[in-house]
Design a protein around this nucleic acid. Structure first.
Length: 213
DNA sequence: CGCAGGATCGGCT
DNA sequence: GCCGATCCTGCGA
């Protein structure tokens, strides 16, 4: 009998906890995508927590809308949003249900399907850039709003799921301010990443956009 | 390598 | 109308 890594998705209970407990534990976990062309999998190296309606940085801050509806639903589901007119970003809803908290999956290391990811991320000059940033991660794994609401705990044959992986050593888990978040939520140190990992995206402070002249 | 500017459109005020 | 949980390219050092 051949030993294989655990293909059982993380249980719903894993996500049905306070988002700040879940976020650091997601590091090292496997995000598995089943595309028509084959599987693409990555090991998460960077995530960011958003604490629901009370968090000025969260999409849920101004209450429930058609766009953020999934965030108010049960934990363990995918919240995918479209931004800047061209990009998608992927979150996991966390508990308790109705809190509308979630975790943005910001970066990872491609472990399976790098050839497929390279086709989708043709401008990446190096494999470490394939999923270095939330929109790059979504692009590499062919994630768009068609996957909004997907149950990530269903099973490994689903189009998108989260599985246990290889956790980092506890002393390798770092945290700091969230990238690109302005307003009242800017200073919260709710971004978590694996220290010294080359696939972690660079920190960028929020920049209000200037109007075109 | 760092920084500035542009792309592009859905969601919400 | 304004702005965004971003990324890419081009330019200069």
């Amino acid at each position: 009998m051949i030993e294989r890594p655990d293909r059982t998705p993380l249980p719903r209970g894993f996500f049905d906890r306070p988002v700040l407990d879940v976020a650091p534990e997601l590091l090292g976990c496997t995000l598995a995508r089943l595309t028509g062309d084959g599987p693409i999998e990555l090991r998460l190296t960077e995530v960011e927590a958003y604490a629901g309606e009370l968090d000025p940085g969260s999409h849920a801050y101004r209450g429930r809308t058609p766009r953020n509806d999934v965030m108010f639903g049960p934990p363990g589901h995918a919240y995918v949003y479209f931004t800047y007119g061209m990009w998608h970003c992927l979150n996991v809803v966390c508990g308790p249900e109705g809190r509308a908290s979630g975790i943005l999956l910001r970066a990872g290391e491609i472990q399976i399907g790098a050839d497929l990811a390279r086709k989708r991320r043709f401008s990446a000059r190096h494999d470490r850039e394939l999923a270095k940033g939330p929109a790059r991660l979504a692009t590499a794994l062919d994630v768009d709003r068609a996957l909004n609401g997907t149950d990530l705990c269903a099973d490994a044959t689903a189009p998108l799921s989260l599985l246990p992986g290889t956790p980092p050593r506890p002393d390798q888990v770092r945290n700091g301010p969230r990238t690109g978040v302005g307003g009242g939520g800017a200073h919260q140190p709710w971004r978590f990443w694996i220290d010294s990992d080359p696939t972690v995206s660079p920190y960028r402070a929020h920049v209000p956009r200037r109007r075109a002249t």
